[in-house]
Amino acid sequence: MATGSIANAHGARRFAGILLRHMENRFALLLVLWGVAIVVMSLLSPYFLQLSTLPYFLQYIPVLGLLGMGQTLVMLSGGPGIDISVGSAMSLAGVFLGWLLGPLDVPILLACLACLAFGAALGFFNGVLINIVGIPSLMATLATYFAFGGLALALTGGRPQTGFPDSFAWIGAPGWLDIPNHVFVVFLPVAVILHIALSRTVVGRHIYACGNNEKAARLLGIKVDGLRLGLYTLSGTLAGLAGIVSASWLMSASPDAGEGLELLSVTIAVLGGTHIFGGQGDIRGTVLAILIVTTLQTGLELAGISMAWQLGVIGGLMILSVATTQAVRRRRAAGR
């Protein structure tokens, strides 16, 4: 990583100039944004571009990344699909894990698997409500947002679970180059697998088909409801995984661990180019969006600027990105 923010700024500006010509290419736009974010952050704080920042920066990524990728998949399949219960599901799964590893003293691997299964069950519940019973996704996941979050709070009395075995900390502990293990062991593999599954397998094609034209997909024999059900289950599993990572990193499972993350996961999916009504978007965009958001968060924190500012910038960014996509779409339709 280059040192010296001025040299970086020059390079970034040239780079941006070339890419601006490809503004309609979402991916390129996101790269530009990331570049801009890095530049701005490094200008804000001398600490930003140091190698030591890297682990600090990367540790936020997996939790948010997992939730964001799950959200992307849910949105892609259309419906419209959205899951605003992921934060609460993550908290509840974390609480479940804490219960398993603490008082019940279950072996770590088994407990993690059980936690994943639990997350899957939560996601499956959402999927059933939405695809079998027929409740609109925003409403169903709003209800489970309340239910899951409330359960997590009520069952723990609002107190974080502790008493995790020491060896559990490995997932969240610094590893190679001081980068937390979960980046390599959890985030990267999941991101790669999901990206390949989405872009190169038949299932991936089907997901895009459901999001693009549900009627056509059904007529082609694609089991739209089953597929969406599966994606909500996957979203729940990823929430469970996020709960494991978060618990390992903090060595405690707090009932509000996922607070606010559902909104952030939607933000990341949308920022990454996923269309809210489905059919458009991909994992790469989501990953870039996560990088942008974490860059902003890390940079602003290092510069001593509060959380709310970060959220404000992210919120503004999200609106801008969707508004420009819509504007581009309308210009295309109007023939200019």
Partner: peptide, 21 residues
């Protein structure tokens, strides 16, 4: 701006909270 309501109000909520801070 034709931004879907859920996205729009999510975004403005963050912005308003930033103003609050």
């Amino acid at each position: 701006a034709k931004v879907p309501p859920i996205i729009a109000t999510l975004g403005t909520m963050y912005v308003f909270l930033a103003v609050l801070f």
